[in-house]
């Protein structure tokens, strides 16, 4: 499907649960409420005409001024050669969301990365622990207000003059 046809089809499929961005530059994306997140992803992945079986990229972005973290999933279909960007927003303090690992196994590691770097936890995730930073690291580096600790295991984190 072309991207316009796909957008029309998804609008018909999901009804009033969708919100489209339609920006002036860059990619168009679909925003859904965080409660519907897992179900909508499940629908889009298994629907015959969408068949978005490939989770291309899954990441989060911190927006402190809105007090929200945005999760972005880039999905794609090899058979239909079309892709869709799905987003949701969750609050920064109680950063919890449903896991997508049952739908796309690739999400297991992407969610671990989001947990490590942005501090978002995922319900029912099979193996949620830090992936890139050491286990005893403090803080979530990709949050905009992150401050680095002064020493880590006796190594100074700034180079002495």
């Amino acid at each position: 499907m072309t991207s316009e046809a796909l957008i029309d089809y998804v609008k018909g499929l999901l009804g009033d649960k969708t919100k489209w961005a339609d920006p002036e530059a860059g990619d168009n994306f679909l925003t859904v409420a965080s409660e519907d997140w897992k179900n909508i992803c499940q629908t889009l992945a298994t629907d015959k005409k969408c068949s978005l079986t490939y989770l291309r990229n899954f990441t989060g972005t911190d927006y402190p001024e809105d007090d929200e973290i945005e999760l972005t999933a880039h999905t794609f279909s090899y058979s239909e050669k079309h892709g869709l960007i799905i987003k949701t927003r969750i609050s920064r303090e109680a950063a919890v969301c449903d896991t997508l690992s049952k739908i796309w196994p690739a999400a297991i590691w992407y969610e671990r990365e989001i947990f490590d770097l942005l501090g978002v936890s995922f319900n029912n995730h099979p193996d949620l622990r830090r992936i890139l930073m050491p286990e005893d690291w403090v803080g979530h580096p990709l949050r905009k207000d992150y401050k680095q600790q002064e020493t880590y295991r006796g190594i100074p984190t700034t180079r002495p003059a």
């Binding site: 890139l132 930073m133 580096p141 680095q148 190594i155 100074p156 984190t157 180079r159």
Partner: peptide, 17 residues
């Protein structure tokens, strides 16, 4: 630390440890 001196994850020189 070179290019990555500003990074939160990189040791700023092997001589620190």
């Amino acid at each position: 630390g070179g290019l990555f001196q500003e990074s939160y994850a990189v040791v700023n020189g092997g001589d620190l440890f």
